[in-house]
Amino acid sequence: MINQALTTSLVYFILPNEYAQSPDQYDGRRIRLGGLVAPESVRFNDFDLQLTFLVTDGIESYPVQHVGAPPELFRENAGVVIEGSFDSGTFVSDNLLIKHSEVYEAPEDGHIDVEELRRSLQ
């Protein structure tokens, strides 16, 4: 019983490119997806509180759907960790965390160091 409870409640932390490599492994289960908010991708409807944006690690990016206002420090290129699951290519999130780490500086030239990004989000 313990073993089963443990495996079903494991939440993997991955970046978009890791999802792209093996979507089957993660589809339908709860994961924490890390990445940066892609520039010019943020849409927020303040009536139904639907927030959509692209999350990217410089290699892959996926659309994110979240219900709720963008948090205080949410902006383009901000490091985010979102919790939820993939539903046919879109990540449906119910928890959105901003990582305001001083370690990772948002890239100026568009090049993202994936390993550094990963470390700064963990």
């Binding site: 019983m1 443990l6 409640s9 932390f13």
Partner: peptide, 14 residues
Amino acid sequence: GSRVTVGAPFFDAI
């Protein structure tokens, strides 16, 4: 090598 967390459902279930 995977980074994981154990979610609240585990602790609640046990």
